[in-house]
Write a protein that binds this DNA or RNA. Structure first.
Lengths: 201, 201
DNA sequence: TATCGGATAGAGCGCTCGTTCTAGATCTGT
DNA sequence: ACAGATCTAGAACGAGCGCTCTATCCGATA
């Protein structure tokens, strides 16, 4: 097919817009990010943005959130696979997050939190996408915990807290411009996992 | 003093503006909240807002963050004082937070997170105020843990994770419109505190 | 070669933003 | 009673918002 080039170019522009939006939402939130800014920084024009996302800013935000969802999931997968022991693996994830956060100049934290909080009363679509992201991430952790022998329900519950703690620690790390909250989270979550493996829930 | 009435009225307007701003920041974030909306909902006028906060939106946001800081600290103090055992006390705090969140229709979560994330690169003053709030809250938790016999450094570190977990769980609870993340956080944080009291750090 | 739909381009719409500015209202100290 | 802060009131400004609209470009098919 000769259409490949055209489609590749099309995907190229669309993908550039989504990635740029994801990064800007992560850094400035939903209301703080303008569509014109997105077009400018993505090297696209307003026409292209509305061509690919006729639903406007909300549709674009949903796509960006889903992109961030997958990106963060990939980081989690890598971190969790790096160690057999789930406690060590989770602590490893906090180190990955801390390093990435510092390298971005403390600007690029959780890809969905800021947008989620701002748009809670505004857009049900965005809220759904954010909720789905949390679900995907905690499912990855839960699977790791199950593999290590935790009971189904314990694994599910603990995984939710793991994701929540990572999220909160990442936010605090950004505000304080320090890796400490994330590294402490890693240490404490490891203890919590150990407590589950040894004894009562 | 006859000035009392005037000052009271002045404080009245100022206080109304601050409280309204705090509530709106909590619900809509920084960029999503307009000064005209604040004035309208506070029953004040633009002139009054700029009279009391000549520094404009940023100065107003700092005052609102500090108000939210104290409000949340008061809730923490109450929750922590309600039980002797720090693990039970922290779990009690999660129940207080869950109830308050649900009563607000899942709209009023952590009073600083949304604003903090949005203004990270924008205003150093706001960032400082948010960082100070986290510090105050974790210090309250640390004090409770110290009273229960934890070593100074353990108490400080664990308190930071407690606040981070509460924060993350509150965010997730808002997005999912469910108390579960907060209640799970309470259960797991209680386990974590017990682990510290019984054995190694 | 003629045609046609996907993609690009950006001027312009109505609106709201944060802020400034001038006037008037209200109360205090003398 | 008068002067002078303090506080209230809201019109007006330039800038930027999300979005619509028309015009053009370009590669693929017939």
């Amino acid at each position: 097919m000769r259409t490949t080039d055209q489609q590749a170019a099309a995907l190229g522009t669309r993908e550039r817009i989504v990635r740029t939006t994801a990064r800007l939402l992560q850094r400035q939130g939903y209301e703080g990010t303008g569509i014109k800014q997105i077009a400018r920084e993505a090297g696209a024009t307003l026409g292209s943005v509305y061509h690919f996302f006729p639903g406007g800013k909300q549709e674009l935000a949903v796509a960006a959130i889903q992109h961030g969802d997958q990106e963060f999931a990939e980081l989690l997968r890598e971190g969790l696979a790096a160690e057999d022991d789930p406690a060590e693996a989770i602590a490893g994830c906090t180190r990955l997050l801390a390093a990435a956060l510092r390298e971005s100049g403390w600007a690029e934290g959780c890809p969905v939190t800021a947008t989620a909080l701002e748009t809670l009363g505004t857009s049900a679509d965005i809220q759904r996408a954010c909720g789905a992201a949390f679900g995907h991430w905690s499912e990855l952790v839960a699977e790791k915990l199950r593999t290590a022998g935790l009971a189904e329900e314990d694994a599910r519950a603990l995984a939710i807290t793991v994701i929540n703690t990572l999220e909160g620690a990442e936010t605090t790390a950004q505000v304080l411009r320090s890796e400490e909250p994330l590294l402490l989270a890693g240490r404490h979550l490891a203890m919590l996992v150990h407590a589950h493996r040894q004894g009562a829930p």
